[in-house]
């Protein structure tokens, strides 16, 4: 009797363990920990995670092969997600909920990955240094009136590679090269992160910079008096460049059903509220109430024509183009 009890308990324990999920993620621990805990609280399923750089994690999953205990791969930027999908580590997932909640331009053409939060890469400016109506578009920053007034993050950051990939998709290689050369010729100053770009704009080293919205949110939250504002470019044309953080189910996962449920939960109204909020991002679905800070930045037209998989496909070209334009 005793043995049976122990064995049945062990089996039960096994079942509970099998329910656990393992997420390999390049998102930083402090941005995902709480949301994973929330899932555990609501469903009882524990979400373990392993953090690292996107490229290294993809190699790890590839390397571990069938032995991998990764169920979900989660990262930021469509370029990284696209790369994961080309490495054969993600499983196409059919889910009515995911397809309904996530607009098609924010997920993989083959449903290998799904965007889970949206960030806009837009223009931040110093109101003391920029006249009303002066700002128009990404392309316009290449004109001579911005000489000595432009700050950018390094071209090595994937966010800029995706932005330039979008421009190549829009204008073709030659025209985009002209635009980027125009940026560089405006004596652009280069920084290693978005926060540094914002600080430079606030201090008047330059008048404008291109940054992700949440970096602006974090900095202004710390110091609300900074002379910094957001501008939504290209409203008359294709709209602001947006990107996602997202995830996909790993091909070798032994827990695909549970993994799918977790992704569906992440794309649900309830989870979206906190998932986007924790990093001051935008929820994946339209018409979901936004967090107050983000709401204050105003409504904008986003580029919804550009399927984010293209950002990955064109990334190589973007890197070469920026090198050619001497954008460091």
């Amino acid at each position: 009797m005793k043995t049976i009890l122990i064995i049945s308990m062990l089996i039960m324990a096994q079942n509970i363990l099998a329910e656990d999920l393992m997420v390999y993620t390049s998102r930083k621990e402090h941005l995902v920990k709480d949301i994973f805990k929330q899932y555990q609280k609501e469903t009882g399923v524990k979400v373990n995670y392993r953090t690292g750089k996107a490229g290294a994690l993809i190699q790890t999953i590839k390397g571990e092969g069938a032995k991998s205990n990764a169920d979900i791969f989660m990262t930021v930027d469509a370029g990284n997600l696209w790369y994961a999908s080309t490495q054969g580590i993600l499983e196409p997932t059919r889910s009515a909920i995911l397809e309904k909640n996530i607009p098609s331009h924010l997920r993989d053409l083959d449903n290998q990955w799904f965007g889970l939060s949206v960030r806009a890469r837009t223009i931040a400016y110093n109101p003391k240094k920029v006249k009303e109506g002066e700002l128009i578009s990404y392309e316009d920053l290449a004109t001579a009136k911005w000489k000595g007034r432009l700050c950018l993050r390094t071209s090595k950051k994937v966010y800029n590679q995706s932005l330039v990939a979008m421009l190549i998709d829009q204008h073709g290689y030659t025209r985009t090269l002209e635009i980027i050369k125009g940026w560089v010729n405006n004596n652009v100053e280069i920084f290693s992160n978005d926060t540094a770009v914002l600080k430079a704009v606030a201090k008047g080293q330059c008048a404008v910079g291109i940054v992700n919205t949440y970096y602006y949110g974090r900095l202004v939250k710390k110091d609300p008096k900074l002379p910094l504002k957001l501008f939504w470019p290209n409203q008359e044309s294709y709209g602001v460049h947006i990107n996602v953080s997202g995830a996909g189910i790993v091909k070798t996962s032994k827990n695909k059903e549970a993994a799918k449920k977790f992704l569906e939960w992440l794309a649900s109204k309830n989870a979206q509220r906190s998932f986007a909020q924790v990093n001051m991002e935008y929820p994946i679905m339209e018409n979901l109430p936004q967090n107050n800070v983000v709401k204050k930045w105003g409504e904008f037209k986003a580029n919804t024509k550009f399927n984010l998989s293209r950002a990955g496909i064109l990334q190589k070209d973007a890197v070469k183009l920026m090198y050619e334009a001497k954008y460091k």
């Binding site: 995670y49 392993r50 953090t51 978005d194 540094a196 974090r218």
Partner: peptide, 27 residues
């Protein structure tokens, strides 16, 4: 360390990397 460490095991250096790559110098 970031790549080879056992799962769920973090070090101070990794924490620094995670926070600085988000521009969170203070933290």
């Amino acid at each position: 360390t970031l790549m080879l460490r056992p799962q769920m095991e973090n070090t101070l250096a990794i924490k620094i990397f995670e926070l600085t790559s988000e521009g969170e110098w203070e933290r």
